[in-house]
Every structure is written in structure tokens, then in C-alpha cells.
């Protein structure tokens, strides 16, 4: 049987509960005051029970499961709290200090951990896992226009809906993601990734003629591009060569003397202005050469039951019912 209290606790119980005498506070006559047995006892027994509960932690930013764009400015926001009647918060420290920028420099899965301790040494730790995607620009709305820079961009449509994404110069990656998107890679070696929905690779702003193929998922002319998940092609105002794949494509030549070749699927081939050569290929295609000019376009329906839309007279029309 030995004391429950350390010598330091015994001292503070006596001194802390003393009745202050003389000048206020400790002085050189009465010290901390006159001893009070009952108050000393109270000061010991009324101490709160030992705190065995760790502090709580609330991470507002980054919330668990969220995705940020690469390089996006995101400031950490979190707080810690010891329970009521606890020993009090001793420390609250996250991967970065509250209010400072979190890591979005590189794509991938990231963790953000906040550790807290109370004055009784109980520790708590909460971790948020967030993702930094590779997008340098990320859309938030449906149907918006997202425009990159002259340098290398990764632009993501986000937000669902049909977006228009312009890569401009540089070697860009354009991700349409949900919705029917229109992707304009611009110059440079671009990757156009339509994602879900019926998406279009558009060269409507190209200053040079384009050779684009959905069969090989590539295009040359305005730089050199690759396609993923692209269903439709829109040519430049120059003499383009557009080739479809075995699925349902819409090939739109626009101005210029274009050559358009549908694949096996039921394609829609639109010649637009200029003296175009339009081939429906397999499948039940719709081939449209109407540009208000008689006799300049050639149409070939190919196998299947094809439909044609022409001017009053064309240069050549074969393979239609």
C-alpha cells in the first residue's frame, strides 16, 4: 500500500488549494496561502477521470474520394477537437498545415492524413484519399467550351453533357468524357478521346487539308492526331480525306474538294461545299452531296440499301436504289 499520488501531485494538491493570504497571489510571507485540508482533498478527488478518448478530426478539404485536376489550387481545411471534459487538444497536424495547398502536382491517388493528440497522450488519425487526375483543365458544366493553351494541355470535359474542347497548339490530350463532345485538337500531336457518347473530331478550324480515318483512329494534316472513342469526323475547309470505321459514323467534309469513305456501318456521309467524292461503303448509308452546285460531286452508295440526297444533277451517282 503506497501513495496513489506522485510527490509532484501531492505538492500541487496542497499548494493549488491553499487559501490565498497577504498580497494577491503568491508572496514572500504566505507563499501560496494557508493550507486547507478539505480543499486539498477536493482538488484531488474532483479531478476529472482520466481521459482515454482520443480527439476527433474533421477533414473538410480534401474530402475522402474527391478528384482534383492536376495543378489545381486546393487548400487544406481541417480541424481537431478534444471531447468535452477531456484533457484538451495538444496537437492537430495534417499532411500540410490547415489552409496550405495540398499536393495536386502529379496525377494519381493521394492520401491526406491528419493526426491529433490530446494532453493525456491519446492519439487519433484520419486519412482522406483523393485523386489527382491528369487533366490540367477540367470542365464542371454540361455543354461548355473548354479552351487550352498554346502549350501541352490535358483538357477534360467533365460535368457530363456535350462539350466543345479546343486544344490549340502543343501536344494536347482532349478528353470529352460523358456526352456528345466536339474535340478540336489544333496543331501538334494530339490525342482526342471522346469518351462515352457520340463524339466528333473536328478540323473545322484547320488551315490545312486533313487525312483522317476512324478505321485507323488517326489523322494527319493539322499535326498528327490519334483517336479514341471518336465516332464522327468534321473536315477542314480544304480538300480532306475522311474515312469511317465499321460502325455508324457521320463524316462531314465541309468546304473543299473532299473524299469521304464510309465503312461497313450505316454511315451518314455529308459532302458539303466543293467537288466531293463520297462513298457510302457497306451498310445502309445516307450520302448527301447537296451543296447547291449541280454536277460537281460524285456519289457511290456501295453495298446495302443506301439513301442519297443530291443537287438536281451530279457528276456521278452509282449504287443507289
Amino acid at each position: 500500500m503506497r501513495p496513489n499520488l506522485t510527490a509532484a501531485e501531492q505538492r500541487s494538491a496542497l499548494v493549488g488549494s491553499a487559501v490565498d493570504l497577504g498580497q494577491e497571489g503568491p508572496d514572500n510571507d504566505y507563499g501560496f496561502g494557508r493550507i486547507d485540508a478539505l480543499a486539498a482533498y477536493d482538488s484531488i478527488t474532483n479531478q476529472p477521470p482520466p481521459d482515454t478518448t482520443p480527439p476527433s478530426i474533421d477533414i473538410v478539404t480534401p474530402a475522402d474520394g474527391v478528384t482534383y485536376s492536376r495543378g489545381q489550387a486546393v487548400n487544406a481545411s481541417y480541424s481537431c477537437q478534444d471531447e468535452a471534459g477531456g484533457s484538451g487538444l495538444a496537437s492537430c497536424q495534417g499532411t500540410v498545415t490547415d489552409g496550405s495547398a495540398i499536393d495536386t502536382a502529379t496525377p494519381g491517388s493521394k492520401t491526406f492524413t491528419v493526426m491529433a493528440t490530446d494532453n493525456s497522450g491519446n492519439e487519433a488519425s484520419v486519412t482522406s484519399t483523393y485523386t489527382v487526375d491528369e487533366c490540367t483543365t477540367r470542365g464542371t458544366l454540361a455543354g461548355e467550351t473548354l479552351t487550352g493553351t498554346a502549350g501541352d494541355d490535358v483538357i477534360c470535359g467533365g460535368g457530363g453533357g456535350g462539350d466543345t474542347i479546343k486544344g490549340l497548339g502543343g501536344n494536347d490530350i482532349l478528353k470529352g468524357q460523358g456526352g456528345a463532345d466536339k474535340l478540336l485538337g489544333g496543331t501538334g500531336q494530339d490525342l482526342l478521346d471522346g469518351g462515352s457518347g457520340v463524339d466528333t473530331a473536328s478540323y473545322s478550324t484547320s488551315l490545312t487539308a486533313i487525312t483522317a480515318s476512324l478505321a485507323t483512329n488517326s489523322a494527319t494534316g493539322e499535326g498528327s492526331d490519334a483517336f479514341v472513342g471518336i465516332e464522327n469526323l468534321l473536315g477542314s475547309p480544304r480538300a480532306d480525306t475522311l474515312t469511317g470505321s465499321d460502325t455508324d459514323n457521320t463524316l462531314t467534309g465541309g468546304d473543299g474538294n473532299d473524299t469521304e469513305q464510309g465503312g461497313a456501318g450505316p454511315d451518314t456521309i455529308l459532302g458539303g461545299g466543293g467537288a466531293d467524292e463520297l462513298f457510302g461503303g457497306g451498310g445502309n448509308d445516307t450520302v448527301n452531296s447537296r451543296d447547291g452546285i449541280n454536277g460537281n460531286d460524285s456519289l457511290a452508295g456501295g453495298p446495302g440499301t443506301d439513301t442519297r440526297v443530291t443537287d438536281a444533277r451530279e457528276k456521278s451517282i452509282v449504287g443507289f436504289p
Binding site: M1, N4, L5, Q10, A37, A40, Y41, P49, P50
Partner: peptide, 17 residues
């Protein structure tokens, strides 16, 4: 000795006694 006399019992008590 007044302080010592108070310490004797109080040194044995504590929040969990």
C-alpha cells in the same frame, strides 16, 4: 506538521480511489 498531516491521507487518495 500540519502540512504533513494533511498529506498523509491525501497522498493515498486519487480520482480512482
Amino acid at each position: 506538521p500540519h502540512a504533513a498531516g494533511v498529506l498523509a491521507p491525501t497522498s493515498r487518495c486519487g480520482p480512482t480511489s
